[in-house]
Nucleic acid binder design. Structure first.
Lengths: 349, 349
DNA sequence: ATAGGGTATGGAAACGTTTTCCTGAGCGCT
DNA sequence: AGCGCTCAGGAAAACGTTTCCATACCCTAT
């Protein structure tokens, strides 16, 4: 059973294997150019002794750090924690460490986090979560990132297409279209939208999808209530109350993420409005609890864990000159929270 | 706007401030012993240039690393992601970085993670999640940790009392007692337990509370069905199916955490068993979605975010010879998933 | 045989800090 | 005035790697 021992240095391994420090380093950092015999001996000894390189020394000397800095909007939101799960899985496979920081959806704070990460010399930066509609913020982030890249740093983003770097992108617009089409096919016309944090591109994109589906059916988003709040359960509650108050004729609510949908459902329950008989509700993301809600939530499934995995994998690829994009599939998952529009308002042509 | 610049070294700051490297270091690392005049100048220059110390060099030279390694059982379980949220908050306040790794509730893998973290020379280790009933695992973990501590590392654990280090502990037994007493007062006697991953002390402790409450009412846990599975939603489903199949007379199910309770509820819904009219369900933890389930979940509230905060705060205190313990409060939160026992079985004395 | 080109290996510099050890100045005390 | 003491500040060692450079060797082509 190898014990980490107080201070086990590469020099110890080298000595015990009867080779020089340089050779031992070459073997263990996989640089090659060492005879199979010596290499084998070094690996053997290293393993016996349970040697693990000191990452601080390694980074200081070599330049690239084995840590990935992951910025998410909110750690304890399932959408992000599932993404984080995917990132952590891949990191574990590759022997990387994951540092998580969160931005609370505040663009300036996020920028500070980013600068901090860069100053800390992490090797890889991953940013999960929507971009902001604010050009200043995006421009500054872009500047920081390209400086970071030119120093050899690797970058990928998830769900953000505004930074000019490798990105894993769900097709938010197509998803918005799909979920809206679903409601329209069920006969709903009085549709309201519970829209998330204003100023996020995710909101804009998903709304664009909703709008596009509506147009195909000869309707316009401008005629429907779109209520903005936070991308959280509380945000969902607020919007639902407002929709119920101002637009009692509504028969379906599109929540632009699942967290909001959960809030919407809780308000409907409090008002004893039967779902889906009197009101349909759809979400977006398919966080894992969505299937276990009552009623279970109709939503657009995004493969969050895979997205996390893809992002890190992408960042690990040899850098290319042009930013790469990987788009993820999405699936409309029809469950119990959506049903045919009630007669009253639906039967009108 | 200070830019991190390609390679800004402490030496640059020192030179520009007209002091030696040593002095600049003393100022910026807050070691003192520098005249106010020089110190001011150094700080001034450092700030102007936007200097940020290279943490790798700092750690290599100084010994203590500004990162906290957080091991959780499962990142994308809300119980743990809320704890992580608390840890990250405090870390951000103190300028520390948080590295998250997860163990998947596998004791051996967890041990590997722990060794890895130590080898990586993190400064602070936090372990969240139950201990294991396996003495070998606990003993090995204890050995690693005390070696780590004797090298100056800081440690705290959350919800684990078996490691002989500073700990933040919810009173699992009292919680189990409270939730059971609640059901007993509602007249339930045919109670079943959906118990989590076997071999976890959390399971043992919560069960002990259940048992104790039962005894006070002249009942014994031995006469009731206790079905073990995973501490997950799927685990909850499995146990619920089994309970329904083998013990149809059951009127209340105690799930030993909320994830399982969610699974139990979904099975009951599938079987069209009305909750709480025909069956009461209670959980444990009060994850944030618990209030939004249908029916909303009666459960024991644990302040997860605070627990994360407390743990890091505790670890940051000057080390003491005897391990410190902070116990957290717990509250029975009565919601809609629990109600009076149905007449049929409850009226029997 | 001998020059020339790899190739495997070792020695030593470098990475950017903190910390130890010194030096010299200022001070109070006898 | 001389003695130790404290204290600010500088020079240099140390931290544990990677990498550059030099060296010795072997092989092949002249």
């Amino acid at each position: 059973m190898p014990k980490p021992g107080p201070r086990l240095r590469l020099a110890d391994v080298a000595e015990r294997a009867g080779v020089s420090l340089a050779t031992a380093s070459r073997v263990l950092s996989g640089r090659g150019g060492v005879s199979e015999e010596l290499a084998g001996r070094v690996r053997q000894v290293s393993h016996e002794l349970g040697y693990v390189a000191n990452p601080y020394a390694r980074t200081l000397a070599g330049g690239t750090s084995p840590t990935v800095g992951l910025i998410v909007h909110q750690v304890d939101d399932p959408y992000f924690s599932e993404i984080a799960g995917g990132v952590i899985e891949v990191a574990a496979e590759k022997g990387l460490l994951v540092q998580i920081s969160h931005s609370g959806r505040d663009p300036d704070y996020e920028l500070r986090q980013l600068r901090h990460l860069i100053a800390q010399r992490v090797g890889i930066i991953l940013i999960a979560g929507s971009g902001y509609d604010d050009p200043r913020v995006e421009a500054e982030a872009r500047t920081e990132l390209s400086a970071f890249q030119s120093l050899g740093g690797r970058v990928a983003v998830i769900g953000r297409h505004t930074l000019g770097v490798d990105a894993v992108l769900p097709d938010n617009e197509a998803g918005g279209r799909a979920v809206t089409a679903h409601l329209l096919e069920l006969g709903h016309r009085r549709i309201a939208v519970a829209a998330g944090t204003p100023g996020l591109t995710t909101v804009t994109d998903r709304l664009a999808g909703v709008s596009s589906a509506l147009r195909q059916h000869g309707l316009s988003l401008d005629d429907l209530p779109v209520v903005h709040s936070d991308f959280t359960r509380d945000g969902g509650r607020v919007t639902a109350e407002q929709i119920l108050g101002d637009h009692p004729e509504t028969t379906a609510i599109i929540a632009l993420n699942d967290a909001m949908a959960i809030g919407v459902l809780s308000v409907l329950r409090a008002h004893r409005i039967p779902v889906p008989e009197r009101m349909s509700v759809v979400g977006f993301d398919d966080v894992s609890v969505a299937a276990d809600l009552a009623p279970s939530l109709t939503t657009i499934r995004l493969p969050m864990t895979d997205m996390g995995r893809m992002a890190l994998t992408l960042a690990l690829r040899p850098p290319s000159t042009r930013p790469r994009r990987r788009s993820t599939g999405h699936t409309l998952v029809v469950r119990d929270s959506s049903g045919p529009a009630p007669r009253l308002s639906a039967s009108r042509p």
